[in-house]
Design a protein around this nucleic acid. Structure first.
Lengths: 195, 195
DNA sequence: GCAATATTTTAACGGTCGATACAAAAAACC
DNA sequence: GGTTTTTTGTATCGACCGTTAAAATATTGC
């Protein structure tokens, strides 16, 4: 019923993600968003509500298209190998990110922490999934016998978490491969030394 | 000559730092800045130029009042102890930061990376001073014999850097003491185990 | 006291912000 | 084919943005 939408809502949302990811929430105006999305302002409001709801939808889709595939990609690996691959992939993603976009969740957490709390909480929720990914895999590795039971899962998962978040900030500084590999090298050693 | 300024330029700049630190560059309007600084808009422009130059001056003063005192505070400690105290202090500062301001340099790097490049480069320069602080102290520890020459100073300094930057992002998530201490515990172990 | 200089105050500038009213357009239903 | 429903395009709204013009105010040098 009614006139059909003449654009793919998900594809256009991907363009919004790109804009928010690169420039942030406040630096992305409705006008530049609409232009980069290839639609007019009123179509944007008709399809996504307002700027805040558009951003919220962008966060959800970013999680679906960027974070969740990374979890799925390592789902069937041995737990420690899953963590190693996740960290390794972070380096490659960062180096193949010439715009220095980093991580939308990290950028959002930093930008909206003392303003748009609902958006901040949404982003933090996804970041906590990364921490949980580390923790559950470390626990599995201890069950497997691949990781010493003397290792504190809480400490190790928190450390890996702040390290990968730090790498996401690093991404915005256009780091070199050697800097990124050096930064994560001790993490790889921690994951093997105590096995 | 002329009418004297009726405010302390440094003290008022501290109020600007507080506002930028808490809310970021774009979310701090000239009007809210002027109000929080206790002066009128034109006085702000007369004293600090424009918004961008005000922010640049805020970055410099923030470095002078927040980062440099921390370096000086550990200047006379044994190098590894200096790093340990710096990390320990980061936890305490984060827990005594109820607004979740984190680090102005990290916030600025994330917010302005793809916009105001001059401000971003300024912030990155100060962050690199932190990395250099780690590297030079690690080298000194190796000269002292307090740190094994088998440890890669580059790897360790890069790791400590991404960890402390990660903690600064963590600060915006209102972390608990146990989370922060767990996150940095492996760093403390790395600094003693290989000594 | 008077001129010169610098800062404060008041008011407002043009521009952009997020958001919308309204009518034209394009499909489905009968 | 006319009605209904949704989306599109155009034009624009009031609010706020960063910034400044201009006049009033407060000091110094003479």
């Amino acid at each position: 019923m009614g006139r059909p939408k003449c654009f793919d809502e998900s594809k256009v949302l991907d363009s919004a993600i790109e804009c928010f990811w690169r420039n942030g929430l406040k630096a992305s105006s409705i006008r530049t968003l609409a232009e980069e999305m290839g639609i007019a302002g009123p179509s944007l409001y008709n399809a996504y509500g307002n700027k805040q709801t558009l951003f919220a939808k962008a966060l959800v889709r970013y999680a679906d298209t960027t974070l969740r595939p990374r979890f799925l990609r390592v789902r069937d690996l041995p737990p420690l190998e899953a963590i190693r691959f996740f960290l390794f992939e972070q380096i490659e993603i960062t180096l193949n990110d010439p715009d220095g976009k980093g991580c939308l969740f990290v950028n959002t957490t930093v930008e909206t922490a003392n303003g748009e709390q609902e958006l901040s909480n949404e982003a933090i929720g996804y970041l906590n999934e990364i921490k949980d990914f580390f923790a559950s895999n470390l626990r599995a590795a201890q069950s497997n016998g691949n990781l010493s039971p003397d290792v504190s899962v809480v400490e190790m998962s928190e450390t890996l978490f702040v390290m990968i978040v730090g790498v996401c900030v690093y991404a915005r500084m256009r780091p070199s491969r050697s800097e990124l590999e050096a930064a994560l090298a001790p993490a790889f050693k921690l994951l093997t030394a105590q096995s």
